[in-house]
């Protein structure tokens, strides 16, 4: 599966203190969520409109996945932090959207407006390329059935492994994440700021 990038979703930190009153042990704190997401990149997609309709309708034909606009993705770590943030929200009963998959998409966005976030970071009718994030099976392996289903559903080319930044629309990314006034415009700092924005979103 050399054309699939892995996005790990680490379990959340639990400072284990034997003296603390808490009875929680590291074993209990094990992640109750998929440990990896697989990121598939489809290019030359011709049926985005149809796919978007399926996503919105919650079509049962569509496997569990998150469809992301690659123009607004700079790195795999950006996706990892959005996943972590979403699973943390879920664990703390603090999700702003209905499902964990939409919560991941919402977490990616710096906007607090759900509809706007979905529009920017999700599919649009004329999307030409799509990142599809697929949660791993229970044993962290690639879920082949899901991937085959997706290959049938998405009319486009499953692209080989690539650098995430190749497809980034930097101008749009900076506008959406409000990074034009950042003093240091290097990709490293931009990534740090995006991730920092995802981490602190909605916290006042």
């Amino acid at each position: 599966m050399e054309n699939i990038t892995q996005i790990p979703v680490p379990s959340l930190f639990n400072p284990y203190d034997p003296n603390a009153a808490s009875t929680e042990t590291p074993a209990e704190a094990k992640n109750g969520h998929p440990s990896v997401f697989y990121a598939l990149l489809f290019q030359n997609v011709s049926n985005a409109k149809e796919l978007k309709a399926k996503v919105i309708a919650g079509d049962p034909e569509l496997p569990q996945c998150v469809m992301v606009n690659p123009a607004l993705v700079l790195s795999s770590f950006q996706l990892q932090t959005a996943c972590s943030r979403a699973y943390m929200n879920q664990a703390q009963n603090n999700m702003k959207t209905k499902t964990i998959l939409s919560e991941i998409l919402f977490s990616l966005s710096p906007s607090l407006n759900i509809a706007e976030s979905m529009k920017l970071f999700g599919l649009s009718d004329n999307s030409n390329s799509i990142f599809v994030l697929v949660p791993s099976a229970d044993d962290a392996s690639v879920d082949e059935t899901t991937i085959n289903k997706l290959k049938n559903l998405v009319q486009g080319d499953l692209s080989p492994a690539h650098s995430f930044s190749d497809l980034t629309d930097l101008k749009l990314l900076k506008k959406v994440y409000k990074l034009n006034d950042a003093v240091d415009q290097s990709n490293t700092v931009l990534e740090d700021l995006i991730v920092g924005g995802i981490a602190t979103k909605g916290f006042l």
Partner: peptide, 22 residues
């Protein structure tokens, strides 16, 4: 966390914030 991010935005070097668990 917000001050860390703000500091980075103004061009100084500070640790990047990955996740905040209030």
């Amino acid at each position: 966390a917000r001050c860390l991010v703000r500091a980075k935005k103004c061009g100084i070097d500070a640790p990047a914030v990955y996740l905040v668990d209030p």
